[in-house]
Simulated assay, not measured.
Amino acid sequence: MTTSAPRRRLPIGNFYNLRDIGDYQTADGTRTGWGRLFRSDATRFTDSADLAALGLRTVIDLRDDAEVTVLPTGLDALVPAVLRRPLDPRSLLSGVRDDAPDPLGDLYVALIRERGAELAAIVADLARPGALPALVHCAAGKDRTGVVIALVLSAIGVADDLVATDYALTADYLTADFFAAIPAESGAADPTDEVLRGARPESMTAMLRVLAAEYGGARTYLTGHGVPGEAIDRLRTALTH
């Protein structure tokens, strides 16, 4: 990766869904910078030189211990800080109706309603001085990672339509080959379930709508769960130019 030719999706390692969260405009006209925050699925880095190109200082792994055991990434030996921040959605899936019009949207709403403390702690991790460049990942880089990245982008002033568009890019990259290549126990969605492995922008928009209606937006949601406003400001400064 070079600063002269930034790209959204990064062909590094064995990742299918490794993306740079750069060049999104915020409400005041600044833009997120390239090479500061990345999102991805979980797979193994095979070349430390590829990783060095990202300059990662922090990795936030949203998977539980069992998922990590099934699919280790090797990042612990290559990045100064690899933080385990389990954000297990499985128990919440039981409350999502099988016949719901948008089960993923319902799941994301349940995550923000039921996992506020965990989500706030993750954003606070990213806001630490010197935490960036950082990578946030789960198994597929879609649901748990999608909610975390959406909270970050929304809290620093990126418009809802851009947040939902970034989320929906996942649908282009999590192909049948992805689901065939990873262990069934990895924590990614069941490859036979077309609904749960999808990434429709409407699902993320549903979550953002609830954030606005019930919490006053992402920033207020995060401060209400213990993230200091100055930490969010620091993260915004570190992510934008």
Rank of each mutant, 00 (worst) to 15 (best):
P228W: 13
S203A: 13
T223L: 05
L174N: 03
R9A: 15
G157A: 04
A134E: 02
L78F: 11
G187R: 01
G187C: 00
L239G: 06
F179M: 11
R200K: 11
S94M: 09
A189N: 13
G29K: 09
I182G: 01
L222H: 06
E230N: 01
T26H: 02
A206R: 14
A127L: 09
T170F: 02
R200H: 05
L54R: 00
L153I: 12
A124H: 11
S91V: 10
F38I: 05
E67I: 09
A159P: 15
D233L: 11
R85Q: 12
T165G: 11
D233S: 15
Y167A: 03
A117Q: 10
A168C: 05
F178P: 01
E194I: 11
R128T: 10
G130A: 10
L222I: 06
T2W: 08
T205C: 06
L93P: 02
G130M: 07
V152D: 01
L104F: 11
G105Q: 14
F38W: 12
N17P: 00
P133N: 07
P101K: 12
T2D: 08
R85M: 12
R57F: 02
T165R: 13
H137F: 05
P228T: 14
I149D: 05
I149T: 15
D47V: 06
R19T: 00
G105H: 12
P183W: 03
